[in-house]
Design a protein around this nucleic acid. Structure first.
Lengths: 199, 199, 199, 199
DNA sequence: CATGAATGAGACTTCATTCAT
DNA sequence: CATGAATGAAGTCTCATTCAT
């Protein structure tokens, strides 16, 4: 009756997964802890055995999922050749992730902004790492001559992130989802050539 | 005393201004209606004479401020020459607005995203108009040969918006604000030339 | 533009009439003073020039309408011959009044009970007068031998009132209103002969 | 301590009992949910674990108490012989119930009328059953010749109910309560013989 | 007299969190 | 470890009443 295999970790994960669903559906503020508990199939009080409070649940979720996303992106980048290839791989993988787990993307995209404002101090480590990943590619491109710009690298990285972020959000909110491959092409083209590409 | 009696509009405006402050400071969900009332120097109940409920206050605020921002941006664009000039004017004015009224920018940037998720259906008309403004410039540039890209115009416009949006957010959250003029230059450079500018 | 003929009394009456409508529709507790004002075509504050507060409005309304109803009932009774005739006249007039002004009946029937509980001490004078009117008929009937009962007259009067009251309420709440003449016949028959009439 | 742990039903019942007290004392509209909670010895929020809202509390109370009263009345009627005996038993039991639990009677008598107006559609099932019980006795009396009237049975039943209801209310509001036995006698006499009894 | 914008006390209700079992 | 009934603080909103015009 009781599966002994259910390690504590399992339950923590189940709660996080449930939280993703619930937060993606209703947003963090409109979500009730008891909804998460119900979705996770645990009692309300159980949440508090694994998380300090509701905020901690959101933060843990960010950390958990951003780390996952980041490593997936890093993996894709690592497997690609050259700055342009890496950039394309990064963007493509990002869109793949979004398409595979839109609920995760929704929470990360929508709630993170809100929260990083509130908890002001808070900004998930993985977020900084993502910026670093992007910056690294840009830096590499500048070094080997693939890219050429005098925009400070960190700012360029942020702009790239914002661009991806917005396209992601747009995709999440749109009814008739556009095609990921196409999206990748556009974004890469835009990033590489700006509005003067082909020139 | 100065102006003989406060017209209704005055009070509504005062409440909206107060709401901007309060929402920018604490975020919409952490703000209490009574805080807005206090900041506006009116009784709690007075809020409800001008707005249906707390949500309506936020929506009204969006509508009001986005319309103002939009007309300012349109004005700047209208005064500029050529697609590139217009693009630069748009971006520069955007950053000027952000620098002048960071609280407004904060609410529009942070809360709007959250809200466009919840009120899903809701999206301020002015937001669509802003996208149209951007798209118009891009289209003009494509027509006269200033720009050249095969990215669909609406998607390009969205990407431009996301890029601006993110840079804005980054500026708002950063402690040591970067210089607007520089920001304008970077962003324009990035948009026009992408990472291959100069090539 | 201003009809000078609108004597203060007119406005007071207008407010009372409006209150009848509103209270009958929504009940006293669910009715807003501003609804009454709107229905009366006056400003909210004007209500307070004629009535001390919301409760006073209800009380005044009771007094006003019960007095009207009472005098109508008294008139009907006075015009009738003999105890039986008077009883029948009373009952018939009661039903006529109910049919003519159901809203008034509704307020008097439904709200008065509630109120006589709250305002415990309060009980409109006209109500006592109505009981007296009924008691008088009973007493007259006992004196001339038309009636014969050893129930104390005041209690008999109360029972008669309750019976009428309930039939009235039933009529008000029922969809397919029964015929007044028939109702009169039944009630008179019941009162005169009880369940053993004809015996 | 006595009974090991309070079953949920216990707490629900405690709240209902508290509500009776509070509503009888102040009336439904003037009663605060927090007053009921205080009287029940529970937290405000606990009320909402057992009842949807304040209105539901009142409705549940009606249903609960009317059902109890009805079964008591039915029991009394069942134990009596013949239509007259049953009628007398019904009336006597009604007055006994009122004397034993005047607060319950007060709520049922005063608030029910108000409510059946508001919640218009709402009318407790037990109320209809009570009318059926009365109608059954009348019908039985007509069948065996104990009673004789050409008033439609359902209307007769309603009149009987109204009569009882009013006498009950009168007793509740009067200071020097009359004697139940006498009241039973009067009412029975009135119902059986009308004002012409003895004839 | 009349207005109606403004007030602000207070009610209902929600829900994060606790803790006895 | 897990539960989920209970808590009670806190927030939104209503509306009777006032008062400056």
């Amino acid at each position: 009756m009781t599966t002994h295999s259910a390690k504590p970790e399992d339950k923590r994960t189940r709660i996080l997964n449930a939280a993703i669903h619930v937060f993606a559906e209703n947003g963090f503020f409109h979500s009730k802890v008891s909804d998460v508990a119900k979705a996770a199939g645990v009692a309300d009080g159980t949440i508090y055995l694994y998380f300090k409070n509701k905020d901690d649940l959101l933060i843990s979720l960010f950390e958990n999922r951003m780390a996952l996303a980041l490593s997936s992106l890093e993996e894709a980048v690592a497997a690609a050749e050259g700055p342009e290839g890496k950039l394309r791989a990064l963007i493509r993988r990002q869109f793949e992730l979004v398409a595979e787990t839109p609920e995760v993307a929704e929470v990360l995209t929508v709630e993170l902004r809100q929260s990083s404002k509130f908890m002001k101090e808070y900004s998930p480590a993985a977020f900084a790492d993502l910026l670093k990943l992007i910056a690294g590619i840009v830096r590499e491109g500048l070094a080997d001559g693939s890219f050429s710009t005098n925009i400070p690298v960190t700012h360029a990285a942020r702009m790239l992130f914002g661009l991806l972020d917005e396209v992601t959000l747009n995709w999440l909110l749109s009814k008739d989802k556009f095609d990921i491959t196409e999206a990748t092409d556009w974004v890469v083209a835009f990033i590489l050539g700006g509005l003067k590409q082909g020139k």
